[in-house]
């Protein structure tokens, strides 16, 4: 074979050789991790906890948010009518209001019904018995349609109801839900900050683990440098080790979150049943699962890449 032919053949082989080299390095890195199971397990567990904590909290906030959305959807507007309005007038007003497009349902709560409810739930039976008459007004409980459930539409409806001559006071039951949602959003922001801090910690854990690995293989790296290995060649096995650490850490994190959700599923159902509600927990969705695995892998890669690059930069001739 002539020199030119041999060179051309080599050029054609390059991608295949490169891919084979990548695969060999990936498998060799995994093999090295498996040969030292205890240290590997400890590092992977540390990474798993670091990823699981923000991941789990994220899933919890998603569940709380879903709960709050349900509460908001069920929240009604309570219209307290002036004392002079009797039940018959209230029924006529209710019929008028049912014709509005931004009203789905109107229930008239008569004075006697309201008093009976108040007596049952307040525990103030003796005090109420001492009153000369029924002090409670007729109340309209108005449920807006689900499609018109945004804040602006509800405010518009509340303002219209307040303008009615029969109205004494309008109370929106969703106000506290909005305050609760604001708190959940604050918690979500906190989870993001925690995730960033733990991401940095993960980077440091992988970086330090790889740094120790580099120390153990310092002679080998030196020899590779002497025989003309490029930085990419030297970096490759360490970067794959970082990738494996990150991926395995992500898997452990997913398992921890899934087990955690399974553990709280029954108590949550019990609490929900006490409130005559059905609340199925939202588990790890595919995008969240992929994000946890992907972020773990990416941070593992970055941590190891930084550690090796740091070492290689320090070993270059001055």
């Amino acid at each position: 074979m002539t020199g030119r032919r041999r060179r051309t053949a080599r050029l054609h082989e390059l991608p295949k050789v490169w891919l084979r080299h990548q695969a060999q390095n990936a498998l060799a890195a995994l093999g090295r991790l498996l040969r030292t199971p205890l240290p590997t397990l400890m590092t992977v567990a540390m990474l798993g906890v670091a990823i699981a904590l923000p991941g789990g909290l994220f899933v919890v906030t998603i569940n709380i948010k879903a709960l709050a959305v349900g509460w908001e959807r069920d929240a009604a507007l309570s219209v307290f009518l002036v004392p002079s309005v009797v039940e018959a007038d209230a029924e006529r007003l209710a019929a008028r209001l049912r014709e509005r497009r931004d009203v789905a349902e109107v229930r008239v709560i008569g004075r006697d019904e309201a008093l009976a409810e108040f007596r049952a739930y307040s525990g103030l039976e003796d005090v109420l018995a001492g009153l000369p008459g029924n002090p409670l007004p007729v109340v309209l409980s108005i449920v807006p349609p689900p499609a018109a459930g945004d804040a602006a539409a509800l405010e518009g409806l509340a303002a219209a109801l307040e303008r009615l001559p029969e109205t004494d006071l309008v109370r929106h039951d969703a106000d506290w839900v909005h305050r609760f949602q604001a708190l959940v959003e604050l918690a979500q922001r906190g989870v993001s900050i925690l995730a960033s801090v733990l991401g940095l910690a993960l980077l440091l854990i992988v970086g330090n683990t790889i740094r120790l690995e580099i120390e153990n293989r310092r002679d080998e790296i030196r020899i590779q440098e002497l025989v003309g290995a490029t930085n990419a060649f030297i970096r490759r096995p360490f970067v794959y080790a970082g990738l494996w650490y990150g991926l395995l850490g992500g898997l452990v994190a997913c398992l921890l979150v899934i087990v955690g959700l399974l553990l709280i599923q029954a108590p949550v159902s019990r609490v929900a049943s006490l409130y005559q509600a059905d609340f199925p927990l939202i588990g790890l969705s595919l995008p969240v699962l992929a994000a946890m695995l992907g972020i773990g892998t990416l941070l593992g890669y970055l941590g190891s890449w930084l550690a090796v690059s740091w070492h290689l930069r320090a070993s270059k001739p001055e």
Binding site: R10, V17, W18, R20, I223, Q224
Partner: peptide
């Protein structure tokens, strides 16, 4: 083999 592997040559060569 190390210098040749580092130079990216195929396994047979």
């Amino acid at each position: 083999s190390l210098p040749l592997v580092a130079a990216g040559l195929g396994p047979e060569e």
